[in-house]
């Protein structure tokens, strides 16, 4: 434990949640295109994930970036390790690596659909499967 309770809380959240996404807004109401695309990729994979909105307190983002040495939001952690931001997660979704990392089946049709339309505002097709 350090004398920085917020950093401890972030560390703990990363440790305690197998899949955790730090983003701007929420998966249901993302406040940034990059966060939106990243959350949509996770939702399309269909495995449950924790999400933390960094917007309510700017210190969350500061501490998170200090921990991860990663300057931007979103940030996806799997099993305590930083996997990446929007670019990496989107690329991994398209290749099927994201499914693998999350322990999901790699759907051939999802990979095809993603590569068929690689650009555009919502290349993944936002579909809320969290219910």
């Amino acid at each position: 434990m350090s004398d920085n309770p917020l950093r401890d809380a972030i560390d703990e959240a990363i440790r305690d949640n197998e899949v955790i996404l730090f983003m701007k807004g929420t998966p249901e109401q993302p406040m940034c295109g990059f966060s939106s695309r990243t959350a949509a990729a996770l939702q399309a994979v269909g495995k449950p994930f924790a999400a933390v909105d960094v917007l309510p307190d700017p210190r969350i983002r500061q501490e998170l970036s200090a921990i991860s040495e990663w300057p931007t939001i979103p940030q996806l952690f799997v099993k305590g390790e930083l996997v990446g931001g929007c670019d990496i997660v989107t690329e991994m979704f398209e290749t099927g690596e994201l499914h693998e990392a999350l322990g999901a089946e790699r759907p051939a049709e999802a990979a095809e659909a993603a590569t068929a339309e690689p650009t555009g505002p919502q290349p993944l097709g936002v579909e809320n499967r969290l219910g």
Binding site: F34, E69, W70, P71, T72, L82, V83, G84, G85, C86, D87, I88, E91, M92
Partner: peptide, 28 residues
């Protein structure tokens, strides 16, 4: 790893430059 590769690109830029003058940098 991809993380390490992207970090190498981020490291080209100074503190506060990303998100500042370089508002967004998409990396491949």
């Amino acid at each position: 790893s991809r993380i390490q590769q992207h970090k190498m690109v981020y490291e080209v830029f100074g503190e506060g430059e990303l998100g500042g003058a370089v508002h967004a940098l998409q990396i491949k």
